[in-house]
Write a protein that binds this DNA or RNA. Structure first.
Length: 370
DNA sequence: CACTTGACCTGTCCGC
DNA sequence: TGCGGACAGGTCAAGT
């Protein structure tokens, strides 16, 4: 369910946490979640420093010092969760709260997670939805783990990288952290949290998402990037641009056009339904039948709603933890999405769920006439 | 070419 | 309570 606002929030959060960190090690347990050649991983991912975190459409781009980038698409159920190393976490808590920083709430505040809302965002990781783990070297000055120790382990690995479907594939899907003990040279459960540095978890219960390692210069050349439409929140995304792109297929339904990533970037089912409701347009209306005035309203509503969602912390309604431990809440503000059977806040009609462009679609039939 | 359907997956919910 | 099936929706590929 991560759409533009959710991915943007992840980008903002990780931008504060990742740049400057150096990758110590990587695991995966599902080939399609991490479709990269082991040799590339060893050469361009391990020991690379993170330069920046960017977003284009629903895609995250983590730029590395090696000239490569980690390109991430969360698709339906992907999440990224950053878990600081224990000692680092404690140090920050001491900084923020003094010596008595012990409550669960305060601990949770130092994690950051975003994406599809499940308990994996706040629970113990890895769990059964974990597909990839990126581990960083601990920051300088960390007391209870020495950089040299971890480096030694990396050098000693008999398998520097798991071949697809081997070893970790079974072990990682087990419940406890013991699973990671299946990796040679690593016994986190026995050694406790201090046995690893800060980690970035890529969780994805439905395995639709992926993390792809690509030369940074090739990222704009991949098919998706070449054909993806403009960013709706950019200043140059004017009403004129919007209408021109919609007019490419005048017979298509307006909702199908909003969902089409080549028309504009980043809109998924939630924000398509919400913006069409705001502009009082029936989602099945062909583009050519929507008045200019309504398209202007739609353009305005879309931008406003996307921005509002970012401001509210994303469209999740539970289990969402941002960099300050605040819960995201956009669905609390949704007017139609997943509100079928409830009363329309605008006219008192009853929200319906129908099917448009092959997707579940939520409308107020009184506000949004065909 | 426009549009629809199926595939990729797993967890949840509904009806029997 | 169990079991099968529908459904969730981002994107690509294949089919109509």
């Amino acid at each position: 369910m991560p759409e533009l606002p959710e991915v943007e929030i992840i980008k903002q959060g990780l931008s504060k946490l990742l740049p400057g960190r150096i990758i110590a090690d990587v695991w995966h347990n599902w080939q399609k979640s991490f479709p990269n050649a082991p040799a590339d991983v060893a050469r361009f991912l391990v020991d690379a420093k993170i330069i920046s975190v960017k977003r284009r459409a629903k895609v995250l781009i983590i730029e590395l010092s090696s000239g490569y980038s980690l390109v991430v698409h969360l698709k339906m159920t992907g999440q990224l969760v950053f878990v600081p190393k224990t000692s680092e976490q404690k140090a920050r808590l001491r900084q923020s709260y003094g010596r008595q920083a012990k409550s669960k709430k305060q601990k949770a505040e130092k994690k950051f997670g975003g994406g599809h809302p499940t308990k994996s965002l706040i629970g113990k990781l890895p769990d059964k939805s974990t597909r990839v783990i990126v581990e960083f070297y601990p920051p300088k000055g960390a007391r209870d783990i020495r950089l040299s120790t971890l480096q030694g382990k990396v050098e000693q690995r008999t398998k520097p990288y798991m071949k697809y479907g081997e070893g970790v594939a079974q072990t990682l899907t087990q419940q406890s952290a013991k699973s990671v003990a299946g990796v040679p040279g690593r016994q986190p459960e026995q050694q406790g949290d201090t046995a690893h540095g800060p980690r970035l978890f890529f969780n994805d219960q439905r395995k639709f998402g992926w993390m792809r390692l690509l030369p940074t210069v090739e990222v704009p050349q991949i098919d998706f990037m070449k054909k993806v439409g403009p960013e709706p929140l950019e200043d140059n995304f004017t009403v004129g641009v919007f209408i021109e792109r919609l007019n490419r297929r005048k017979n298509s339904s307006i909702k199908a056009m909003l969902l089409d990533q080549t028309v504009l970037a980043g809109v998924g089912n939630i924000y398509a339904d919400e913006s069409l409701f705001a502009a009082k347009i029936h989602p099945a209306t062909p583009v050519f039948k929507v008045s200019k005035a309504k398209l202007v309203m739609l353009h305005n509503a879309l931008r406003q709603i996307l921005q509002q969602a970012i401001d509210k912390g994303g469209s999740t309604d539970r289990n969402y933890v941002d960099v300050k431990g605040k819960k995201g809440s956009y669905l609390n503000f949704a007017q139609v999405f997943r509100r079928q059977g409830q009363v329309c806040s605008r006219c008192g009609g009853v929200i319906q769920k129908i099917r448009v462009a092959g997707r579940g679609t939520h409308i107020c039939p009184r506000c949004q006439k065909r």
